[in-house]
Design a binder for these strands. Structure first.
Length: 357
DNA sequence: AAGACGGGGCC
DNA sequence: GGCCCAGTCTT
């Protein structure tokens, strides 16, 4: 049975055939491993930002087995700077699952794909459609925006009702015999024409039937309700050096930067000067009654995260005798590039590369 | 259902 | 400073 395609769907496919010139290394890719890798990297990440990471990962790990066999620290080093580090951890777990449970053959059913770590409804639909031509409509930021504008839907996209409504609509619009092309079309269209800011409505092939355009709602759609609170945090990092070595640890708390490394941290709720820090309980917990000599204090560094502003300062200390610091490792300073660090620390290290603390 | 989770680009 | 990006997981 042939179902008639919606006008919207027809126009989108036509735009894709005749106008769309967007090009990306993973576009048209049929290898599910490469599709999966690109999708994980691109979650909440702009194409331009993820692109070089994708190239690097493919070079280092051309197959899922290679990725599964890689040392975790090496993979995190490659991921360093990309953010949302749980993606990296989950990606490695999924690679090992595919290698072990599926013997290296990427699962080709939606439910199996979605059950892999780090793969939710969007990524499962993307892989299922791009790699296996399965009829699953993708629902990402682009699709929310294009659908809410064209159909004039004012249901908040961050509500449960909204997600369900958009999901149903997206699935209805999907041409089952061209799911890969359609999914690619709507995402490219959202990125190139129906952009968040300054969309190209004058040249839009859907302009005649776009509800938002006719009602001047384009800049107002899609609607989101949740607004985020930005917290301020103050990180005071102690760079404790012993001879040519320095103490670091891996962050493991349920907090930002899990699985990345850092130095001794004293977090405070306000900017702290060195005297305050030296007399703090946290400082005593690190050093007991020893009074290590402060060598230098860096300028303040600031990093803006989505929902936190991190102010950091780096304080260098040389000790004659290494303190006992549970959970920390003493590593050669010239081996720091074997470990993954958060952006604010790599920025500090690079700013300081000529005169290492 | 609501938060948490990075980093960067654009206005 | 605010918004958004080929979203997912935890609580």
């Amino acid at each position: 049975m042939i179902f008639p395609r919606h006008f919207f769907t027809e126009k989108l496919l036509e735009w894709n055939r005749e106008v769309n010139t967007r090009n990306m290394p993973w576009k048209g890719e049929k290898d599910p491993y490469r599709i999966w890798l690109s999708e994980i990297i691109l979650q909440q990440t702009r194409v331009e930002q993820g692109w070089p990471y994708y190239e690097r990962f493919i070079q280092h790990y051309p197959t899922v087995e290679k990725l599964a066999a890689a040392p975790e620290e090496e993979v995190f080093r490659l991921w360093q700077g990309l953010g949302y580090y749980a993606r990296c951890k989950n990606m490695l777990a999924a690679a090992r699952e595919i290698t072990n449970t599926y013997l290296g053959k990427f699962p080709d059913q939606y439910e199996q794909i979605k059950s892999l770590k780090g793969i939710g409804p969007y990524t499962a639909a993307a892989i299922a459609s791009f790699a296996f031509n399965l009829p699953y409509a993708v629902l990402d930021g682009n699709v929310f925006r294009v659908l809410s504008r064209y159909f004039g839907i004012e249901t908040p996209i961050d509500s449960t009702a909204g997600k369900k409504q958009f999901d149903t609509l997206a699935q209805e619009l999907l041409p089952e015999d061209a799911s890969a092309a359609y999914n690619q079309s709507i995402m490219d269209f959202g990125a190139v024409v129906c952009k968040p800011q300054q969309p190209l409505c004058d040249d839009c092939p859907l302009r005649k039937k776009c509800v938002a355009l006719q009602h001047q709602l384009v800049p107002l759609l899609p609607i989101k309700t949740k607004k985020l609170q930005i917290k301020k945090r103050y990180f005071n990092y102690l760079l404790v050096n012993y001879k040519e070595q320095i103490f670091i640890r891996k962050r493991t708390d349920s907090d930002i930067w899990q699985n990345l490394h850092e130095f001794l941290l004293i977090e405070t709720t306000a900017p702290s000067d060195i005297t305050e820090l030296q007399t703090s309980e946290a400082f005593r917990n690190y050093f007991g009654n020893a009074k290590p000599e402060i060598e230098r204090v860096s300028a303040p560094f600031k990093q803006q995260l989505t929902h936190q502003t991190i102010h950091s300062q780096f304080i260098s200390i040389h000790v004659k005798k290494p303190p006992v610091l549970p959970g920390f490792m003493l590593v050669p300073r010239n081996s720091l590039n074997n470990y993954a660090f958060p952006k604010t620390i790599t920025t500090f290290l690079e700013s300081n590369h000529l005169q290492l603390f």
